[in-house]
Amino acid sequence: MLNYTNAITEEKSYSSLQMKEIKPVMKLVIRGKKREFLSAIGKSLNLLLPTEANTSSRSDKLTALWLSPDEWMIYSNEILNSESNEYETENLLNKNISKTNLGAVTDVTDQFVLINMKGDKIFDLFETGSPFNFNDFRNKKGSVTQTILAKIDVIIHNQNQNEVNLFVRRSFSQHLFSWMNDSASRL
C-alpha cells in the first residue's frame, strides 16, 4: 500500500476568505478538433463540452472547463478514494476517444492542485497579483480563465457567488499557497 501525500496540508481561514486543497479529484485534459470528438464526449459522459471561450459546463459527476478551442479540462465533482488511481471516466474516454483516434485523453490528476476558495475577499486577493480583469468574471457563474497569479500560471473557475476553484501545477502550489496566505493576511 502506498501512502498518499498531497501538496497542501493546511486549511486556511481568514475573516472573509477560506482556502483549502480538495483531493483526490480526478482531472483529465481532453483534446480534439473533430465534430465527432465533441459528440463522442457528449455521448460517453452525458456532458456537453463548452465551446464558448472562458466558460464551463457541468453534469452531476463532472465539470468541464474550456481551455482552448481544442482543449478542455474535466474534473470530478466529488472527492474520490485515494487508495486507487483507476478512473472510470478515463477508461471510458480512452476507449471512446483515444482508441478511435478522435482525440487525446491525458490524466492530469496530480499535475494540478485544486485550491477551493470561499469568501467575499477572493477577488481582492487576486488583484494583488493577477493582471486579469475580474470585473465581469466575478459576476458570471461558471466563467473560466487561465491567467497569471503571482507570476504563476493558474486556471480559475468561478464556481458560485463567492466561491472559486483555482488550479495550479503541483510543483508551484506550495509557493503559491504561501503567497496567497501572505496576501490574505492583510486583506
Binding site: 471561450a53 482552448s68 478551442p69 493582471p131 486579469f132 480583469n133 497569471i148
Partner: peptide, 11 residues
C-alpha cells in the same frame, strides 16, 4: 482571437 482582451504579460 480565442480568449479576448488580455494583458501583454500573458503573451
Amino acid at each position: 482571437p480565442y480568449c479576448g482582451e488580455r494583458e501583454q504579460s500573458e503573451f
